[in-house]
Computed example of a mutant assay.
Amino acid sequence: MTGVRVVLVGPMGVGKSTVGVLLAERLGCRFRDTDEDIVAEQGRTVADIFVDEGEPAFRAVEKQAVRRALAEHDGVLALGGGSILDADTRALLAGQPVVYLSMDVEEAVQRTGLNAARPLLAVNPRRQWRELMDARRHLYSEVANAVVATDGRTPEEVTRAVLDALELKEA
């Protein structure tokens, strides 16, 4: 195993999974999403875990999922939007090839409508999204080697920008 090729971080709905799949195809490796790992392990959705057990319980599960994925996976890895809130997780990302996929609130509205099953955006989604980003933006930047804006770009254009930002060659 050679280690993770690319770790994607950023807010919910930014396209980490979509871009991650494309990146993995271009790099000739596997894609893994820690939110999907959690759903498979827990047998229920992220939203259900939030509702049933609360955010702290979800964050503990998420922290373990990220730790496991970083240790086991050797392809492209997408992390849940809030995973960078944990200091231990941020420390694990040091030295990893991390790309922060960014977008503004208007792009988030266009992509997700901010009305999907997003437990942290249940009431006044625009305001809550802005507040989440105010609290997280600096953490995404802290762990990232590169920032790639996704606003107005297709997934293919974002994928190319990530490859260029990390100076990666396609397989």
Rank of each mutant, 00 (worst) to 15 (best):
D134P: 09
F31G: 00
L77S: 05
R59F: 01
I84Q: 03
D104V: 09
A24Y: 04
F50C: 03
G15T: 07
I38M: 09
L168Q: 03
D134F: 08
M1I: 11
G20E: 01
Q128F: 09
R67A: 15
V123S: 13
A122M: 08
F31Y: 11
L79F: 06
M133A: 11
L168M: 10
V109M: 06
G80Q: 00
V99I: 07
L166P: 05
L101D: 08
Y100W: 14
A57W: 03
E142P: 00
A108Y: 07
I49M: 05
W129D: 04
M133C: 12
D151A: 12
T159N: 08
V162A: 04
M12C: 03
L22P: 02
E142K: 05
L8V: 03
D37H: 06
E41W: 12
D88G: 10
A122P: 06
Q128C: 11
K16T: 04
L114D: 08
A108Q: 02
L114R: 10
V98M: 05
Q110K: 15
V148C: 05
E72T: 07
Y140G: 07
V66C: 01
G75W: 00
T2N: 13
P119F: 14
R118L: 13
L101M: 12
M103Y: 07
V147W: 00
D104Q: 07
E53N: 11
D74E: 13
L120I: 06
D35E: 07
R118K: 12
F31W: 12
A122E: 09
V51D: 12
E106P: 03
A144S: 11
L168D: 07
T112P: 03
R126W: 05
S83E: 06
Q96M: 09
D151V: 14
V6L: 05
T159S: 11
D35Q: 04
Q42R: 14
L77Q: 02
W129N: 05
A146W: 00
N115T: 14
R5Q: 11
C29G: 01
L79E: 06
D104T: 04
L166I: 02
G113L: 07
V46L: 09
R136V: 02
G80F: 08
V109F: 01
G28C: 06
K16S: 04
F31C: 04
V39I: 15
L163W: 12
Q110E: 13
R127A: 15
V105K: 01
D52I: 06
L166G: 01
P56F: 13
L139T: 10
T150K: 04
R126E: 13
D104E: 08
A24D: 07
L77V: 01
D37L: 14
G82K: 08
A87R: 13
E41M: 10
V4W: 02
N115M: 11
L101G: 02
L27M: 08
E167F: 12
F50D: 03
E72C: 00
T150Y: 10
A108P: 01
T89F: 00
V162M: 07
D164N: 14
D151N: 15
A87S: 13
A57I: 00
E41C: 09
R118F: 13
L163A: 09
S102D: 13
D86P: 08
R137S: 14
G95I: 12
F58Y: 11
R44G: 03
A122V: 10
E107F: 06
N124E: 15
L77K: 02
V9K: 03
A171N: 15
L23R: 04
V148N: 02
R111Y: 00
R127M: 10
L93R: 00
L85G: 04
P56D: 10
